[in-house]
């Protein structure tokens, strides 16, 4: 499910990843060098990952810089772990 949170406080990526493990997380950032930002939305299943990507591009189209963080397995055994070798 996609959870749109639109939080306004600044949190580090590591804090947010601990708060939402096994999730892909959309964060608004001020600069590409940042390791912190505002939490916009969370996808906690592979079914909603595409919706999270849509949100990402909606914001980018509005010239709001944001990225998706989080890289954990969320589909259990059906998913490929980040290991392309």
């Amino acid at each position: 499910m996609l959870h749109v949170l639109n939080q306004t406080d600044i949190k580090s990526f590591n804090t947010v990843k601990r708060e939402f493990p096994y999730s892909r997380i959309l964060m608004q950032i001020a600069s590409l060098d940042d390791g912190e930002g505002q939490l916009l939305a969370v996808s906690d299943s592979e079914d909603s990952d595409d919706d999270l990507c849509k949100k990402l591009h909606e914001y980018l189209e509005k010239d709001i810089l944001c990225i998706i963080i989080g890289s954990y397995v969320q589909g259990g055994e059906r998913n490929a772990i980040y290991s392309v070798r």
């Binding site: 990507c53 990225i67 392309v84």
Partner: peptide, 26 residues
Amino acid sequence: KRNAAMQFIIDTGASITCCRAKELGV
């Protein structure tokens, strides 16, 4: 035009730079 912004994991064991298609463009 900027097509996407994304966070990459630095993976020295990966031969190529890769991501999901939807993250690059819906």
